[in-house]
Amino acid sequence: MNNASFGHKWLPIGLLAPQLVITLVFFIWPAAQALFQSLQMEDAFGLSTEFVGMENFVSLFMDRLYFESMFSTLVFSFSVAIIAMASALFLAVLAQRVIRGGGIYKTFLIWPYAVAPVIAGVLWLFLLNPSIGVLAHLLAALGINWNPLLNASDAMWMVVLAATWKQISYNFLFFLAGMQAVNKSLIEAAAIDGAGPWRRFWTIVFPLLSPTSFFLLVVNLVYAFFDTFGVIHAMTQGGPGTSTSILVYKVYSDGFIGLNLGASAAQSVVLMALVGVLTVIQFKYVEKRVAY
């Protein structure tokens, strides 16, 4: 901690005021409202509300649809995380190997990070739309019956693909940085001992990348849980049925389309707890990384 400091008392409060006011009004207050509303129930006409305690949570956890939504969120998020990390690691290993053109490859691989999730959704929808999509036609030519409008697992694949595409660049950059931090003399020693590139990767580089991988797993899960609303909204609107209605999409559709305040608030509270847990994991991990 920095010892030198100014002695003013009111100036720092003034400097902090804009940040604190915005935090209180637009973050803390709505979060408190969500907590409060989750304990209340509105009558059918929205005229009166009554305190119902944990009833919203009980009915939420008794609801089969909520469990289905949780399950699809898990399927979606882990698919996105695993596919995005595996393909990024593969590309990073190759980019690390080539000396010539490495910088150009990097530039051409990082730009999808800048594309909004909803735009990624629209782009892939155009490729995978069963009536006009290029890839959909290719799949049809290969004899695969592809119809994300009717088939739940096709729809899941489609949103996973769009969400993954956007996230590869992020993982690529971090894997590349992680590999550049691996001590070169370890690799050279292994090469002298006769280990080929394949063996060197799996016995030296891959284990040394495990902190990076763990960190990326958390970041990717957070991304898939909370930042992919646009992908779902543009591509499937949670359908067919509710098969791609992940938790953030369900909060939105129950609140704004279903207008069920209590249920939506209870879902918000559950999600806030989830973000809290993930944030703590991320920070605990970062502390460890600093201590290396």
Binding site: T23, F26, W29, A34, V251, F256, S268, L271, M272, T279
Partner: peptide
């Protein structure tokens, strides 16, 4: 605390505040 409260998870009440 703002780290733990992205808009996506508290949609309705934030809308009401606005």
């Amino acid at each position: 605390m703002t780290l733990m409260l992205p808009v996506e998870v508290r949609i309705m009440p934030t809308f009401q505040v606005i």
